[in-house]
Every structure is written in structure tokens, then in C-alpha cells.
């Protein structure tokens, strides 16, 4: 058996208690949602901390309230939430292709958004990492993927729900001892090497809040993985379209694109999307968008399949997403 490192487990019953526990731990803590990511990392001895604060007992986080999806809602319960899926059908495919049905039973939405980045050099036991030569992200001097990088890890972000929440304009509601704030998901992720979120260590991701007009966006998430279960995205693209006028006319009012699993955060491709406003969503436009997505991404060798291939596939996934949306309004 893999042995989990020792830690103190806090099991608060309310958000206030959780924040208090975090304050007491003085930042040397991790929150635990479903644990399907955190506990694997802990078993591998990756960035473990002495205090773990479980959020499962916080009732208010474990439900969906209209457009507010509690951070503690499990992926499986979201998958079974017919009202939510009717409003946001793009999530249906994304959830069905996320991890495995067993993992979705415990994995939570917040945990999925905050999923740690992954890398073929990293997600292994301490023994294997030592044998392979430790890298920057875990006790080593240098990144193995981007040789020479001593200050930035290029591990891959592959949380499958963040891209969709982004195209629907969702915000992350964060709570800390300093109070609550709401951050649009499109500015929630940032690459600066060490952290990847604007979230502070002691902040709890309480919920994801969809804006009132979120359901007007038609969305699709297309994911490429080697196997239809377990596998993280090798590359994926989420697309959101707000049609101008009747949808059947297919005039793009606003286009939103997130390229996923090609960088350390989900990439909000604003500049790629903008020029297509006003165009008709036909095959030519779809191809053009796909090609622009491919041109815009620069994956590195941190996953199973080679980056050059994944770069091509980012565009293919975008095209598939767009075709699905186009077919949905045809």
C-alpha cells in the first residue's frame, strides 16, 4: 500500500469553522474536497502539508442553488442534475468524459477547478521521482520538460469543468478570514510559475456562480484522451457561442474559446475568438477558428502524447465543438 503522510485532519461543520481552522494552521494546510486529486498527490509525497481541512461537512457548499453551484457538489451529482444539464447541455459530455464514474462520485466541482497541474515526471511516487531525477516542482533544481527552466513549472492543467464554466461567464466565490470576494473565472487563473490562481492559500472556493445570461451561451467541450475512462485530457477545447439574432441563422454574436490541457492553466483565447464575431458559423468559419486555435497554443511534453500532435488536435477539438453547436441549432 501507498502510505499517506501524517497529517492532522480538521472536519469543520461550517464555513466559519473551516476558515478558522485555516487561520490556525497559518497557511500550512490544504483543503480537502473529494480528495481524488489531493490524496493521490499526498500518497506520492508531492507538496504535502501537516493539516488537512475537509470541507465535506459544510452543507451549504454541497448543493446547487439556481445558478450557484456549491464547490462541494460532486461531479456525479451534477451529472444527475437534470435541471442544470438542461440549462447547460455542454456539461453533459464534459462530465461523462471526466475521470471515471467512480471518481466522479467523490470528486467535487471545486476540487476539479483547483486540480493541481500534472506532468509525466511528477505524478509518481517519491521513489520514482528520485530515480528519474527530481524536477523543479518537487524538490529539484530544474524542469525536465522545458530544459533550463529553473523558475517555472510547465506541468499541464487538465481540469475538465473550468473551461466550460469560463465560457459561460462563471465567477468563483471565495471566502477567507478577510471576507468574501467574487472573481470571474476568466481572470481566476494566471501563470506565474508558483501559483496558478488568484485564490490565496487560505481561501475556500465556496461556489461557482453563473451569471443571469449564462444559459444563452451555447457551449461544447471536446476532449481528446487515449481511453474513454480514467484518462486526463491530452488536449481539449471548450467553445461558447452567443448567437446574434435567431440561432438558426447561425450568426455569431460572441465567441468564447478556452483551450485546455495545453498549458498550466486553461487558456482563455480572447484574441482568437474576437475576429469571428459577426461571421456565420459555417464549415469555413469552423475551419478558420480551428486553425487559429491550433496556431495559438504551444503545448509542451508533459503528457502522454507528443506536443506537436496535441497542438494540431486543439484545433480539431475546437472544430468538433463548433460543429456540435452548429448541429444543435440547425
Amino acid at each position: 500500500m501507498l502510505i499517506l503522510p501524517e497529517f492532522k485532519l480538521e472536519r469543520p461543520k461550517s464555513l466559519a469553522e473551516a476558515l478558522d481552522a485555516a487561520r490556525r494552521a497559518d497557511g500550512k494546510c490544504d483543503f480537502l474536497g473529494g480528495g481524488t486529486d489531493l490524496l493521490c498527490n499526498y500518497k506520492w509525497g508531492i507538496n504535502t502539508r501537516p493539516v488537512v481541512i475537509s470541507l465535506r461537512g459544510i452543507a451549504e457548499m454541497n448543493r446547487r442553488d439556481g445558478r450557484r453551484v456549491g464547490g462541494g457538489v460532486t461531479l456525479a451529482s451534477l451529472e444527475r442534475d437534470a435541471d442544470f444539464l438542461d440549462a447547460f447541455p455542454g456539461f453533459r459530455g464534459a462530465l461523462a468524459r471526466l475521470a471515471s464514474p467512480l471518481i466522479r462520485e467523490t470528486g467535487t466541482v471545486a476540487g476539479n477547478i483547483l486540480l493541481d497541474t500534472r506532468c509525466i515526471w511528477l505524478n509518481q511516487t517519491e521513489f520514482a521521482r528520485k530515480a528519474l531525477g527530481n524536477c523543479l516542482k518537487a524538490d529539484g533544481p530544474e524542469c525536465r520538460v522545458v530544459k533550463g527552466s529553473t523558475d517555472r513549472c510547465y506541468a499541464n492543467y487538465s481540469g475538465d469543468t473550468a473551461p466550460l464554466f469560463m465560457v459561460h461567464g462563471a465567477s468563483a466565490r471565495l471566502a477567507s478570514p478577510r471576507g468574501e470576494r467574487s472573481v470571474p473565472l476568466t481572470s481566476f487563473f494566471r501563470i506565474d510559475g508558483i501559483t496558478r490562481f488568484v485564490k490565496e492559500r487560505d481561501e475556500v472556493l465556496v461556489s461557482l456562480d453563473m451569471p443571469p445570461d449564462a444559459a444563452e451561451i451555447r457551449s461544447s467541450y471536446q476532449k481528446l484522451r487515449v481511453r474513454e475512462a480514467w484518462d486526463f485530457a491530452e488536449v481539449a477545447t471548450a467553445v461558447g457561442v452567443r448567437f446574434d439574432g435567431p440561432a438558426s441563422k447561425k450568426r455569431i454574436g460572441e465567441l468564447r474559446i478556452v483551450a485546455n490541457a495545453v498549458a498550466s492553466i486553461p487558456l482563455w483565447l480572447e484574441d482568437v475568438a474576437k475576429p469571428f464575431a459577426g461571421r456565420t458559423l459555417d464549415e469555413a468559419t469552423i475551419d478558420a477558428i480551428g486553425d487559429s486555435v491550433t496556431a495559438a497554443v504551444q503545448p509542451v511534453r508533459a503528457t502522454w502524447l507528443p506536443p506537436s500532435y496535441r497542438k494540431q488536435m486543439a484545433g480539431v477539438m475546437a472544430k468538433r465543438a463548433l460543429r456540435e453547436i452548429a448541429a444543435g441549432v440547425a
Binding site: T36, L102, I103
Partner: peptide, 26 residues
Amino acid sequence: DLGTCGCCTVIADGRPVLSCLTLALE
């Protein structure tokens, strides 16, 4: 021991869970 085989599946409150990725206290 890492969520990838399902050998450890038990039922908790009517739903399957992976007991290798669930803390006993939880």
C-alpha cells in the same frame, strides 16, 4: 491505491466510492 482500478469500491450511502481515496474518518 490511486483511484485507477476500482478494486477497492464499496458502497457509501447508496453510491459507490473508492475506499483507497477516502479517509477512514470521513
